[in-house]
């Protein structure tokens, strides 16, 4: 087998992708990659508010993926595919891009897309109100359910809509990707 890593490096650089991860994902990888994100951003002479927004969109996206894997496992659907994530941090002109993709059960994908579309239709004030309303709801006891605030927070920090796309993998699963520009 032959790998051309230089070609991969060039492909990533031409797409303005600065940091990229693909593989089994864990909290310690989230932390280490998060360090790299912050190091790169702090060298970039950017406003601290933008730096914090990029970092928090990264954290919310990746922790959503981890929570999803735990939730499926709690439903009796333990599958190594849910432990995998593809994450990249890059640039698009003067904006920063945080993108991630993971395997999602087909039963969940449409609802996730609908949630994102609904958030994309809200303005800043409505998102702020939605965040507050959701944060006052009693926490779910369901494993991996989280506070239900991650996507709202990502929407608040993203300029323009959160882009999402589904790629069918099988009858049971899709690869679900989201892209946020900050």
């Amino acid at each position: 087998m032959y790998f051309n890593l230089l070609q991969l490096k060039k492909t990533l650089e031409e797409a303005n992708i600065l940091i990229c991860f693909n593989g089994p994902f864990s909290q310690s990888i989230i932390e280490e990659l998060g360090n790299a994100v912050r190091r790169y951003l702090s060298n970039d002479q950017m406003e601290s508010a933008v730096l914090m927004d990029v970092f928090s969109v990264y954290i919310e996206q990746t922790q959503n993926i981890r929570n999803y894997a735990r939730r499926r496992e709690a439903l009796g659907d333990k599958n190594p595919a849910y432990e995998m994530a593809t994450v990249l941090i890059g640039r698009d002109g003067d904006r920063h891009i945080v993108a991630s993709g993971n395997t999602v059960h087909a039963d969940d994908a449409a609802a996730l897309a609908a949630t994102i579309d609904e958030l994309n239709g809200l303005d800043r004030q409505e998102l702020r109100a939605r965040f507050k309303e959701q944060s006052r709801k009693p926490a779910s006891n369901e494993v991996g359910r989280g506070a239900g605030l991650g996507l709202i927070d990502i929407a608040r920090k993203t300029s323009g809509p959160i882009q999402h796309m589904m790629h069918p993998l099988s009858e049971q699963h899709v690869f679900f990707q989201i892209i946020a520009a900050i």
Binding site: E60, S135, A139, A147
Partner: peptide
């Protein structure tokens, strides 16, 4: 200096 959204919920509690 940084809190995730889960922490927001816990602080409210």
């Amino acid at each position: 200096s940084y809190i995730n959204t889960g922490t927001v919920k816990c602080l409210l509690d």
